Computed example of a mutant assay.
Amino acid sequence: MKQFKIDINADVGEGIGNEAQLLPFISSCNIACGGHAGYLQTMKTVVKLAKLNSVKIGAHPSFPDKLNFGRVVMKLSNEALFESLTSQIENLQSVLKSEGLQLNHIKPHGALYNLATKDLETANVIIRVIKSLNAPIKLYAPCNSVLADLAIKEQIEVEFEAFADRNYNDDLSLVSRENSNAILHKNDVVLSHVLGIVKQGKVTSINGVEVLIKANTICVHGDTENALGILDYLNTNLIRNGIKII
């Protein structure tokens, strides 16, 4: 059987409080750092848990909008967005430094993530932020997105991300959370979805269209209903299907 490899990541530090349960089942995490959620204490708590479980740590910056959980596009100047994202990441880096750890990657959150996949100006701000950190920090972003393509052009290492618990449109955009079929909850459905992405490089859209996709890392959102059950099920069944979690 051919051996496949995949990283499993989760968005954490967002106020759910389930990190102690989730982290043993993932290989990288994206920690909210004050934009849409998270405070210094939550960052400290999750960083310590990640260290304990040998989980790679990423920053999960967003539009500075806790009221809307970073899921609404904010009209900010490029410089204001640059300063906010830089401040958020630096807050997490200060916690990492106190634990003797390094930042592995950056993954934008919510509306910022979705906007940067198609908007060059927003993507450019994120790339500027990463380059200003002067460290070999990776970017988690969807394949064939404006953000990923720009990062590659700027010689930033990209881990292509796909979502275990989200449905896709024909253009590989995520189905809006406002739709009832946006989120996948059932373990067997999620597994089938992930197996197609990892082993076949394909995902079936909500319209039944098979779309080509590349992924080095798969996300399960920490606030998805049954997130723990999904991760437990994936850990067992990915291995059974010849996929190693790295």
Rank of each mutant, 00 (worst) to 15 (best):
104 N>M: 11
101 L>A: 10
119 D>R: 14
105 H>T: 05
92 L>A: 11
111 A>K: 00
121 E>F: 02
124 N>L: 05
84 S>E: 11
70 G>V: 03
102 Q>P: 09
88 Q>S: 09
113 Y>S: 04
112 L>M: 08
80 A>W: 01
89 I>V: 15
114 N>H: 08
104 N>P: 08
92 L>P: 03
120 L>N: 09
103 L>P: 11
104 N>E: 07
68 N>S: 13
74 M>V: 03
120 L>S: 14
91 N>P: 00
78 N>C: 05
118 K>M: 05
110 G>D: 06
118 K>N: 12
78 N>A: 11
82 F>G: 03
64 P>G: 06
87 S>D: 00
82 F>P: 07
89 I>T: 08
94 S>Q: 15
103 L>M: 14
94 S>E: 15
84 S>M: 10
103 L>W: 10
105 H>Q: 10
71 R>F: 01
73 V>N: 12
110 G>M: 07
93 Q>K: 15
75 K>W: 05
104 N>H: 13
106 I>V: 13
96 L>R: 03
65 D>Y: 07
124 N>K: 09
96 L>I: 14
82 F>L: 05
96 L>A: 12
93 Q>A: 08
112 L>I: 00
67 L>H: 11
122 T>Y: 00
119 D>Y: 04
109 H>C: 00
73 V>E: 07
72 V>Q: 04
123 A>R: 01
86 T>K: 06
76 L>G: 02
121 E>Y: 02
84 S>Y: 04
81 L>P: 05
81 L>S: 00
71 R>K: 00
